[in-house]
Computed example of a mutant assay.
Amino acid sequence: MLIYKIFRAREWDVLDTEGQTTGSPDDLRDGFIHISTAAQLRGTLDKHFSDEKDLVLAVLDTDDLSDALRWEPSRGGALFPHLYRSLSRSEIIEAHQISLGPNGHELPEGIE
Rank of each mutant, 00 (worst) to 15 (best):
S66K: 13
E18T: 04
T17V: 04
G76I: 07
D13L: 06
D26R: 15
T21L: 09
G23P: 11
D27Q: 09
L65I: 07
L2A: 06
L79K: 13
L100P: 13
T21P: 12
E91V: 01
L2R: 14
G76V: 07
R10Q: 11
G104V: 01
A39E: 11
R29K: 14
I98V: 15
E112P: 05
S24F: 10
I3Y: 10
E94M: 05
E91H: 05
W71D: 09
D63V: 14
L69F: 10
R42E: 03
P81N: 08
L100H: 13
S99V: 12
S88A: 12
T37W: 03
T62R: 14
A95F: 02
D26V: 09
L15D: 04
D64W: 01
E91M: 02
D63K: 15
E11R: 04
H82C: 14
I35K: 04
G110L: 06
L28D: 02
L100T: 11
L15C: 05
P108Q: 03
D63H: 15
H34V: 00
L45K: 06
I33Y: 11
E11M: 00
T37R: 15
L79R: 12
E72T: 10
E94Q: 06
T21Q: 07
D27Y: 09
Y4K: 08
D67I: 03
D30C: 04
G110Y: 02
G104F: 03
D64F: 02
I98A: 04
D51C: 05
H34Y: 13
D51I: 11
K53T: 15
L28G: 02
E72H: 01
G101Y: 00
I111G: 06
G110V: 04
E109G: 06
D61C: 13
E109T: 10
H105L: 00
E91C: 02
T22K: 11
P25T: 06
G104Q: 00
W12N: 05
I3Q: 07
H96Q: 06
D46W: 04
A9I: 15
D51K: 10
P25G: 05
I111L: 07
L28H: 05
F49M: 00
L69A: 08
V59Y: 00
L45E: 04
L2W: 03
A9Y: 08
I6D: 02
S88D: 11
L65P: 01
I93W: 00
G31C: 09
L15K: 01
D64V: 00
S86R: 14
D63Y: 14
L69K: 07
L65H: 03
Y4A: 08
G23H: 07
G104Y: 00
A9H: 08
P102C: 02
E52N: 10
L100G: 14
R89K: 15
G19I: 05
I93A: 04
A68G: 06
H105V: 00
S88F: 10
T44C: 12
E11V: 03
I3R: 07
N103Q: 13
L15R: 03
P73Q: 08
L100F: 12
L41A: 02
S86G: 13
Q97H: 10
D64M: 03
L79N: 08
